[in-house]
Nucleic acid binder design. Sequence first.
DNA 1: TATTGTTATACTCTATAACTATA
DNA 2: TATAGTTATAGAGTATAACAATA
Lengths: 145, 145
Amino acid sequence: MTDPSIDYSLLDSLVGYRLRKAQLAYFEDFTATCAEEGITPGLFGILAVVQRNPGLTQTAVSQAMGTDRSAMVAAVDKLEKRQLMERRPSDNDRRSYALFLTPEGEQFTQRLHERVQEHESHFDRVMKPGEKEWLLDLLDRVIRA
Amino acid sequence: MTDPSIDYSLLDSLVGYRLRKAQLAYFEDFTATCAEEGITPGLFGILAVVQRNPGLTQTAVSQAMGTDRSAMVAAVDKLEKRQLMERRPSDNDRRSYALFLTPEGEQFTQRLHERVQEHESHFDRVMKPGEKEWLLDLLDRVIRA
DNA sequence: TATTGTTATACTCTATAACTATA
DNA sequence: TATAGTTATAGAGTATAACAATA
């Protein structure tokens, strides 16, 4: 992945940059697995949030994903076209839609989630027992810092 | 940063996604610090590689950064225009340039590096003694996996 | 023939601003 | 007035293909 004859020491001294490299290594696998199912990591993120939080509005999901609500339109269009998600008119507010997974979307999301986890287990080999839980906990503290 | 009333558990069960969130948290700081100096993380990466590996060709740097060589043209143009880097004709191959930092570029890179490290130390507060070294080592193993 | 730097081009992701229909 | 979804648009970032000069 990286040229061993090149000195990266200045970048590697920054936690942020090494974190980025590790994330890219993970996402290479993740993106490939998603691509085999004809989807992107971004769309999977939306599926995953709606799966656990059915009925959210588009704006609520965009806030959860950290993107602008304008970006949700094309994303939900794609997921609807693939019949994985559907917009239902909101009961109490005729401006907004409530988002739900279709039965097919539920199945799709669950299967892809399992496949991604299988691919991720490749990285378990470089971790000692207990290290993964430690990593997840530390990353969580970093995120909330 | 994230809505506490929303269930992210499906995404959080994936190391790759939590790694991405943590990386974004780090990079928010990193990008802001770079922006104050009128630069981007991408351009800083190029400066950092050339600083430690003076004389590399554009193609070699693009490979080190994991981008296409065509993307280097505009990047080096910007750095040359700011007089932080210079293209020198290669001795043995008249097709290529050798890249070097100017004295100003050396100073700039060193100062920005120090500033980024200072900002990163904000995250040290969430780590117990020794945890940072362990994290850097684990990330390194992940990158090489 | 292959490679370096370059240009033109396109595609994705994301953000902003303005519009409409509701609230 | 403010907000939800939408549209148009623009800016990064990155990739591909083709070209001239050189190897």
